[in-house]
Design a protein around this nucleic acid. Structure first.
Lengths: 221, 221
DNA sequence: ACAATAGTGTCTGTAAGACACTATTAG
DNA sequence: CTAATAGTGTCTTACAGACACTATTGT
C-alpha cells in the first residue's frame, strides 16, 4: 500500500478592529508562486511540530506576539488538488483575534505586511475563501461566546466592546441596551474598579474579560 | 528549502440515534497499527482527491450511502507528531449525521463494523478525542441549526424529532412546548400533509426538513 | 372503556428593543 | 454654558417553561 505524499502548511486569518472596521493581516509574497500577490500569512509545518504550535509560531513571526493575548483557534483545512501549483499541499487554517496593534513587521518570506479592510479580494491560492470563512466564523462566534473581548486590550470600556460588535456586525447598536446586556450577562466582563481619564464625556468604568466560555443568553445579531 | 513530508487521512465521526441514544459507527482494525482495536472509520486521501470527496468516499464504503441523505461537514484536523506510529500523519476529521440505518458492512481494511453507544473509550490513535469533539459539535449545532432533521428519515413526526433532541442532549423535553417551538420556528420543518398509521395513540402529521440553515430563535438546551 | 400519543390554549417570568432620563466629564 | 459619552429606569412585546385541556387513534 502506498500513501500519497503531501506537504502541510498553516495559514492564519488574523483579525483586528481598527478605525471602527474589521481588518485582516495580509503579507505580500516574496517568493514564487504568486510572487508579489497579497496572501494570508502562513508557512510549512515543521517536521516535529504540532499544528497549533506551528500556528502560534507563525503568528509570533508576523506580529511579534507570543503571550496569551487575543485568541487562536483552528478554522478548517483546505486541500483541493491544484490549490498550490507546487504540488499536493493541505493547509490547516487558524483564526486569530487580536486587539489593535502597532503596524506589523514583514516576516522572512514576505516583502511587506499590512492590515487591510476585510473586503479585499484577489488573494493568492484559495485565500479569498479562507478569509471569508474566517470572517463568517468570527461574526457567528460573537453571538454566543465572549470572544469580542479578544479584540480588546486587557482593560476596556463597555463602549469599546460595543465598538467591536458594531465593527464586526456592521451596524449601530443601542448603547443603553448594550450596556445593560454586557454588564448583566454572567461571566462576560468583570469590573476592575478603575475608570478612563481625559476622554470627552463622562469617565467610563474599565472592565476585563470574565470567565464564561459561552454567553447565556447570547447577544442577538 | 525543504518541506517535511506528511501523509493525510480522513476520519469519520458518523453519528446516528438508535434506541433513544446517540451511537457512533466504529470499525475494528484489520491491520497494523492498533490491529484489533476499535477505531473511527477512515483512510488515506488519494493522490488526486479533494478532502471532502475522500470523506464522502469513505462514508460510502462504510455505510453503503452515496446520496445526499444526512449531513457531512468538516470537524477539524489533528496532527500531533507521534499520533500515528507509522510516521507523520495529519488526519482531517469529518462529522456525519445519519438516520438510523441497517447494520453496517465491514469495509476493506476493517475486520468488523458496528454502531456503538458514544460512551466507549480506548479507541485507536487519538480517536477518543476526535469522537468527543464530534459529539460536542453535534450537541452544540442542534441548538442553532436545523441539523436534528439529518438524524431523521425524509418524512418524520414531531415526536421523532423530539426523540433526537432527547437522545443527543440526554434529558426529557416537554412534548407540548417542543411541538409548538418546532412547528412555529420558520423554515425548520414543513408539513407534507400525510400522517402516520397503525401506531398507538393519535396519528401524527408527517413533516420534512425546511429550508432554513439557522434556527431563529434557537432551541435552548 | 382505557392507555397512549398528538396537538392547542393559557399563564407567568424573563429578556430584548425602544427610548426618556440622569450623571459626569472636556472644552 | 454646550457637547459628548456613561449609565439607569420604564414600557411594550416576544418567547420559554409549566401545565390544563382537548383530539384521535389501538387494544
Amino acid at each position: 500500500m502506498s500513501y500519497p505524499v503531501f506537504a502541510v502548511t498553516v495559514d492564519l486569518v488574523v483579525l483586528t478592529v481598527r478605525d471602527g472596521a474589521l481588518h485582516v493581516l495580509l503579507v505580500q509574497r516574496g517568493c514564487e508562486p504568486y510572487l508579489g500577490r497579497w496572501a494570508l500569512p502562513g508557512g510549512f509545518v515543521h517536521a516535529d511540530e504540532d499544528l497549533t504550535t506551528a500556528a502560534r509560531r507563525e503568528l509570533g513571526e508576523e506580529t511579534g506576539l507570543d503571550g496569551p493575548a487575543g485568541h487562536l483557534e483552528q478554522l478548517g483545512s483546505y486541500g483541493d488538488p491544484g490549490r498550490d501549483p507546487r504540488g499536493r499541499v493541505v493547509t490547516v487554517a487558524y483564526l486569530a483575534l487580536l486587539p489593535d496593534l502597532p503596524s506589523p513587521t514583514a516576516g522572512t518570506d514576505a516583502a511587506a505586511a499590512e492590515w487591510a479592510p476585510i473586503g479585499r479580494r484577489g488573494l493568492a491560492f484559495d485565500h479569498d475563501r479562507i478569509l471569508a470563512d474566517g470572517v463568517e466564523r468570527a461574526r457567528s462566534k460573537l453571538e454566543y461566546t465572549p470572544l469580542a473581548t479578544a479584540f480588546c486590550p486587557p482593560e476596556f470600556t463597555i463602549g469599546a466592546l460595543r465598538g467591536v460588535y458594531e465593527a464586526v456586525w456592521g451596524g449601530p447598536i443601542d448603547p443603553r441596551n448594550f450596556h445593560r446586556k454586557a454588564t448583566t450577562t454572567p461571566g462576560f466582563v468583570e469590573p476592575t474598579g478603575r475608570s478612563t481619564e481625559g476622554e470627552p464625556g463622562r469617565p467610563a468604568r474599565l472592565y476585563q474579560r470574565g470567565e464564561a466560555t459561552r454567553l447565556n443568553p447570547p447577544m442577538s445579531r
